[in-house]
Nucleic acid binder design. Structure first.
Lengths: 340, 340
DNA sequence: GACTGGCACTCGTTACAGTCGAGTGCCAGG
DNA sequence: CCTGGCACTCGACTGTAACGAGTGCCAGTC
């Protein structure tokens, strides 16, 4: 396809103007605001080509041009220049995250920070259990036939679960069980626990066998099967910025999608290490989000990825800015986690 | 004020019709749909009085009448008949809540259930720590100078916190600390802990004194001061039902309010035992929510109130239905908690 | 060959006038 | 006290016209 440098410059100018003004941009306004060095007529010819190639389109015959999803894609891939964060923003990130007292706190602060900086909806996944290790498993007697099982992961995440035992157990038994379980599981990656749990049951002393079997079931459920992912969300009010123009007038599908953990996880949770993923409009697999874009990345200490985070907004968003912000926040949170 | 029975019946009819049709209701339509036994002209006279008293108003001169906040208030206080839940709804409640495995699960299921049944935004407060007792405090060594403090409340709520110690401690010391702390605090109501924590420090053996002091600080922070309340939210997509007519076209203020935990707590957290509170429009203390109504109630095992739950929607909502649903769900959750 | 100025054309937006009808307030009579 | 009748109000809708931003195309220029 014959897209010379000037045509690309025109596309870039259109995207930038449209993102900031939210109005279809015409040839005249374009040459006035950017130093393209050519006349409106020439720009019009370029626009005709860009439209033919599917990068921009006209909402109405007598209106200016608007980028298509494909246009944004080209812009993101080849035209946008990295936008370094302002010192003020860097300071905001530090100030906001310093002083977090536990993992919950870190995640909540992060998601609010992202929402505030990007003025979009922010999503942060808790460190995935699948990629964590067991630091400690605690058994707390609640009654003679009930235990509270508390699992502490190396990421600081804590999961708990009430266990109904088949019969009463003594305090000493609980101590034994606790020791056996920790000897076997402490330090193991969660994804590797199933065979270990199996071994626990087999190696348990006969009198503890039934109790251990019950515990094993719950352990497997808690560690592997059940709701292993958690998510924090913030900034939904930002969806209403830009009036009703974005999202073609209805927030409904977006809000519905945001209530589905599964959807959010797919959006931000499957990022490869150290890359930033951008999903634009209908590149998204969910129909509800065909009018939205997502910028996401993974985070974690060093090169390990423990979870994802990102922002969601209208396709008409400031991609370079949001990409830079998401990256910076993710890196900072990674460093923070590495300290623990 | 001279509101005879018929005028009240007219008001009730107006509220019911407006809630279901979402359109201003006129005198003619009213007599057609309700057996009032009088002519439209008479109804018009009644309406004039109701308007004068501030219970209804006309959006435009040539339009029908719409209830005011004051009108809804009168309706809720004196005119609405209790709407018993349908068997289907009762079954839905049971089916939805049965099988919850821990507190998190109960709360999440509850909030989703409420949102689904009322088709409004649902809010559920986690059992308040202030009103809970300590069941057990666990200390888990992370490194020689770091402990994870885990607090398990009798409601099943679990809070954790990382503690940096002033110096290294031995495993035996940790055992001692754990025993001392639990001897003193287990079973105590959280609101009564501060003096007990103080005593812990004073009575600690000299060699454990510095460590205990650090722990005490964190304990007080975790148990009493910090973020002691948690909240779950669901059904925000329901805000978009009824097009843009409710909330005068902008969801913004509502969404903003919903992001503030403090606001939500004020809305649903201050309910007196066993009553259902209804806040209508500007009765609400938050400007952002002057177009919304809230139906809330407390819940807990037996007569104790551990937290609040409720729904939020447009002032034009089905008050009797929502009140009945919120009550039923709260009662059911209370019973569920009593079993633990 | 690439760019430019000019021009006719399209079509959404806005303004204005006119009609329609739902709903009202008021009044005289039962 | 209720009712039927009637004049009135005013928002919603329709049709027409003027406007203007923006376009595509073409002939002319460098």
């Amino acid at each position: 396809m014959g897209l010379d440098d000037r045509k690309l410059a025109v596309l870039r100018a259109i995207v930038e103007d449209y993102v900031s003004t939210q109005e279809p941009v015409g040839s005249k306004a374009l040459v006035e605001r950017h130093q393209l060095g050519v006349s409106p007529a020439t720009v019009r010819n370029d626009m005709a080509v860009l439209e033919e190639e599917g990068y921009i389109r006209q909402p109405h015959t007598s209106a200016g041009r608007v980028p298509t999803d494909r246009g944004y894609r080209l812009f993101v891939d080849r035209l946008s220049r990295v936008k370094p964060l302002s010192p003020a923003e860097r300071r905001a990130i530090e100030r906001f995250l310093v002083g977090a007292v536990d993992l919950d706190d870190v995640v909540h602060r992060t998601v609010r920070l992202l929402a505030q900086l990007t003025r979009q909806v922010a999503v942060v996944q808790y460190p995935s259990l699948a990629r964590s290790s067991v630091r400690h498993l605690e058994l707390v007697p609640i009654s003679t036939t009930r235990l509270m099982l508390v699992m502490i992961a190396d990421t600081g995440r804590v999961e708990q679960r009430l266990v109904e035992l088949p019969g009463p157990v003594l305090a000493d038994d609980v101590t034994d069980l606790r020791r056996l379980i920790n000897e076997k599981l402490a330090g193991a990656r969660l994804s590797e626990t199933p065979p270990l749990v199996q071994a626990l049951v087999e190696e348990a002393p006969t009198d503890l066998r039934p109790t251990m079997t019950t515990l094993a079931t719950v352990l497997l459920e808690t560690l592997v099967e059940r709701h292993e992912e958690r998510i924090a969300l913030a900034g939904t009010a930002n969806l209403t910025r830009g009036g009703l123009l974005d999202f073609q007038g209805s927030l409904r599908p977006i809000l519905e999608a945001l209530e589905e953990e599964v959807v959010l996880l797919k959006l931000i949770g499957e990022t490869e290490p150290s890359t930033t993923r951008v999903l634009i409009g209908d590149e998204n697999e969910f129909d509800n989000l065909r009018a939205a874009s997502v910028v996401s990345t993974g985070y974690g200490p060093g090169a390990t990825i423990l979870g994802g985070m990102g922002v969601l907004g209208p396709t008409r968003m400031d991609y370079p800015g949001n990409i830079a912000t998401v990256r910076a926040v993710a890196r900072y949170v990674g460093e923070l986690l590495a300290q623990n």
